[in-house]
Amino acid sequence: MSDAVTPAPTARRPGGAPSSPLADAWRRLRRRPDTIAAAVVLAFFGLMAAFPTLFTTTSPRTCPIREARTTPQGWGGEHPLGTDALGCDVLATLVHGIRPSLLLAVVVVSVSLLIGVTLGLLAGYHLGWVDYLVSRAVEVFLVIPLLLAALLVLSLFKGVDLGTGTFNVILLPAVVLILFGWMPYARYVRASTLEAKNLDYVTAARSLGASDLRIMVRHVLPNAIGTVTALLPTSVAGVISAEAVLSFLGIGVRPPATSWGIQIEQGSEWVLGGAPHILLAPLICLVATVLALVVLGDALRDALDPRLSA
């Protein structure tokens, strides 16, 4: 070939040495200090959820009422973060409440993501009656108020004893929140699928004879999922606070189990009553978790997108 061109020197690394995309992603991830900090925060909370006894020896269920609303005594005191309105240790409640909160958030977000992405992808890709069914279902679920639906589920499961394991404790709120939480994902994914499926590289794959499944999974989804990943960290926060509302109705995490949502709910009554620490302790932890997820989610998206590589 007489006109063979030498490729432009676009790559930073000499010679284009083979390297796996995952290794590249890790290299880029490591270079960002905010990512490291976010990872440390999440690891810390993860450890707390897994081994709560490492962080406190006090039981969250011993609540001497005469010690109610003790102000934080600092590290080394009997109640490092003070006590709440009933005299329970705030630190102990915080440490023991993280497991149901995080588990609920992870379960709800991942299951509704799975449902939403699947339905949205199918609707956007196939259109026709599939799209009609999915779109109408989305609209129906969007117009039903969450609390009304929660009351319905509550009445359905009123007499059912679900046991006291961590997973059983969060089962009811998880069902309600998944049932009414998958629609945004479906809508976003459907919209981006509509956009992505008409691009030339999808036509190219089709002209090569690729199956619908292959086109959806390999070509459409990776390029349509971007908008949804930005939604995930905030959804986690939304789930944790929504759980608090459900607890108020009696279908959230049931006592004696505790959660951050319940703690925030109860603490908010005493912000102006001289005991803001009851609210602030779980709130700061929640904000830290969500921020860490946002930062990590951003970094992950950048790292996995070859166009944004450094």
């Binding site: 995309p21 691009l199 030339d200 590289y201 036509t203 190219a204 794959a205 390999r218 070509h219 990776p222 390029n223 997108d305 070859p306 166009r307």
Partner: peptide, 9 residues
Amino acid sequence: YTSLNPRMS
């Protein structure tokens, strides 16, 4: 620019 999937090598 649109006929190659940007996420594939």
